[in-house]
Structure formats: C-alpha cells, structure tokens
Design a protein around this nucleic acid. Structure first.
Lengths: 226, 226
DNA sequence: TAGATTGTTAATCGATTAACAATC
DNA sequence: TAGATTGTTAATCGATTAACAATC
C-alpha cells in the first residue's frame, strides 16, 4: 500500500509508454481466462508461461500502475483483473455509436466485443433509406443527418467509423464539434486528430504481414529442394 | 545495382526485424496513394511528412531489402511499389479460404481486402446445412467435413479462422496435416504454431487501448474543472 | 523462520534518429 | 559542376531482461 500510494499521484500518471498500454488488453484477456478456469492466484512466472513473455516484463508492466501483487504470494487474480479493468476504463460505462451500417458495421454490432468490455452500443447511423429506422442486432439505425442531435441525446463517448473512406473528413469534422472523445477508425483513411483520441485499424496490414511470412516460408522450402 | 546484389544473397535474408516488416504494409498503402495521385517520384523527406515518421526511418527500413532509391533523385514511386509488392508476396497469387461463414467471415469475404493485395478467396467452410452449397459474395460455401479435400483441390495457401473459439484446436490440428502455410486467426484463441505462420487478430485489444486513451482524456478534463 | 515471489534497480539489447560521405 | 538525396555508420534513445534486495 505504501508504495502504491507513492505511485498514485494524479490519475493521469507520468505517461505510461504505449508499448505497455498495448499489452494491457492482453493481460485482460488472460486474466479472464484464469477466472474462467477458477484460478484465484497467479505468479508472474506462471502467467509468463501462459502468455509467452518474460515474468520480468509482466512485473515491470504492472508496476507502471502500482503494486498489485504481494511478495511471496503472487497476484490475486480477481483483484488484478479488477485493477486492469479500472485502468482500461471497462467500468466507465462508455457509450458508442457506429457510423455505417454495412457489412462491417453490422458484423461489429452483432459481435460480443463490446459487452465483454463494458461498452454499450447505443446507435448506428447510415444514409440509406432502406436501413434507417430498422434495427441491427438490437441497435437502432438513425439517419446520418441526425448525427449530432442523437450523439448528444444518447451521450455517446466513442464513435466507430465503418462508412466509406470518402466520407471520413466530412464526418470527422462534424465529430470534432461534438462531445465525442474517441474514434475507432476502420475507414482506412488514417487520422491523427488532436482533440479526439484515435485508433486506426488497418486489418489488411496484418494480412500482408502474414503473406510476407508465408512467402518467406515457401522460399525456404524451395531452397531445400535444390 | 552493385549494392543491391550485395544485399541479394539468399532471398530469405538475414532476418529483417518484425518492427520493419510490420511497417511495410503501411508503405504499401501510401505508395498506392501516391500512384493514385499521379506522383512518379518521392523523396524520403516527402514521404516522411505524409506518413508522420522520420525520413531516416524510411531509408533505414527500405535498405533492409536493398537500395531502391537513387541519390539526388529519391525513389521512383512505381518501382518502389513494385518492390514492396514483391517483398510482401502480393504477386505470388496466394489463395485463401475462410472457415466460418458467420457475420465476420461474410463481411471479410465481401470486403476489398483481398483483391487489393493479390489474394484470391477460393472457398468458405461452415457446418450449417442452411449455408453450405450457397455463395457469399461470389465464394462457394463448402461443408467443413470436406475441408482437407477442398483445400488440396483448390491449392489453398492461407486459411482464415472466423469460426467459434471452441473449434480452434480441432481445426488447427487438421490444418497442420495439410499444405496450408498461413493462418489468419480471428478466433480469439491465441495460436503460435510451429509449422504454419500465424497472425492472431484481437481487434478488441485496439478498442481497449482506445478506451484507455479516452479514460485518460476524461480524467484530465475533470482535473481542470476543480 | 524459511521459502517464495514481488518490486525495482542495473545491464543488455534493439530500434530509432542523426549525421555525413558517397553519388546520382 | 553544384545540388539533392540516398545509403550507411555512429550516437541516442527506449524497451526488455536479468538480478537481487525487500518483504510477505
């Protein structure tokens, strides 16, 4: 507790490196797994084996946010999970809306992604007369014209962009004048705003990295043949 | 040419760092953009501005694969693009099949992801009587029982996993006995095989990183209010 | 208490950036 | 040729790992 409070200063701490932050969701996943398995206690060594990383890294990472473990014992799984949820804002009750009710938007809305992470999908927006007014999953689709009004009415914190790339600049400009704090951007048009936190998704990049790996593998295969 | 051939040794080079490889798809995207814009020539300085990275990094990255530029001139956009396509296996004509014809599988198949990257989607697999035999986009859905036979028949190199998490181990074990060289894994069940190259996708991790950022931002906002 | 395992500092490793000579 | 810009080496920076004293 002593050194935890040392670390606690202000809640927007001394800036934790992105490398660490990007690993937190992975801890989140593995801790859920442990909970599902009924484990109540885990050491950095055990966890490191499960996750295929060093125990050192785990301890280092977790200590960016304060001391969650106990010497000689390890980590209490439920407590650690609760802490990580807290850090990641899982219990903040974020509210999100999806712009674009096409294949991708619909697939996302129907996925368990959001519920697992304490995020509420409260609206979708589209331009097409044939979808507006309907529901996808159990989310109502509104017309994009009503964007600002609905976002306000529904207290949306985070917006998910799945509409065609071409509309991106227009939509983002509109969002900048709302209370939206985050954009999860699937359009392919890269964004780096200023006033809103952004995560750009380029899922194709991963496919290409995979292709690179496969190409390498096959090259090597061929070499051996000669 | 001289130092290019120096670098050319064997095609499965001295192992390029993953950091670099993961950036290649980004170069791919920006080069396409330049081509679309009609640019034929670009310097590392220009590109660095577009991409928001250092010119040094760009030159460093590209030089892992040989000298694609020319002193005093910069890089020929089309040539560089061609080279990056080559490195990433875009022109290898990879063939892929999707396992799981649910929301995600269907959305992927209908997306332009594959065509852009020279990958052919040649089959889908599912277990549900109501989908097997039909087409999604213009891809035929086969029964999962025929997996091995169809993969062979259709010369599939890469398999995309979008079926429920629970089936993962079973399917992967079956794949290990085929000629499949790559797995693009959306199941959430992390894999690290051995004999097949794997890319695990955890799209929810990005959502959580976003939530972290938003939570931070909102904390800061509150602080100012006091 | 003895044993285990954390929190944390120090050492290592790798990746990024800066600088500049080579050269188009 | 002079100017521009690469390829590449060296310097810096940051992230990971190792080690161990603190402590439960």
């Amino acid at each position: 507790m002593e050194q935890a409070s040392q670390e606690e200063r202000d809640s927007s701490r001394s800036v934790v490196s992105p490398a660490v932050i990007n690993r937190l969701p992975r801890y989140f996943r593995y801790l859920r797994k442990l909970i599902r398995m009924g484990k109540t206690r885990v050491s950095s060594a055990e966890l490191s084996q499960m996750m295929n990383v060093t125990a050192s890294q785990i301890r280092q990472d977790l200590n960016c946010f304060g001391g969650f473990g106990q010497q000689g014992y390890g980590y209490n799984v439920n407590y650690l999970y609760a802490k990580i949820c807290e850090i990641l804002g899982v219990d903040m009750g974020f509210r999100t809306a999806v712009i674009g009710a096409g294949n991708l938007g619909s697939a996302l809305v129907r996925s368990p992604l959001f519920e697992k992470r304490g995020v509420d999908v409260v609206a979708m927006f589209d331009i097409s007369k044939s979808i507006v007014g309907k529901k996808i999953g159990n989310v109502r689709v509104y017309h994009i014209n009503d964007l600002e009004a609905r976002l306000k009415e529904l207290s949306v914190d985070i917006v998910i962009l799945t509409m065609p790339k071409e509309c991106t600049d227009d939509i983002v400009n509109r969002l900048l004048r709302t209370d939206v704090h985050g954009i999860w951007n699937f359009t392919g048009q890269e964004l780096e705003p200023s006033d809103i936190v952004v995560e750009n998704i380029h899922i194709g990049d991963s496919l290409m990295a995979l292709c690179y790996g496969v190409a390498q593998r096959m090259d090597k295969g061929k070499e051996k043949e000669t």
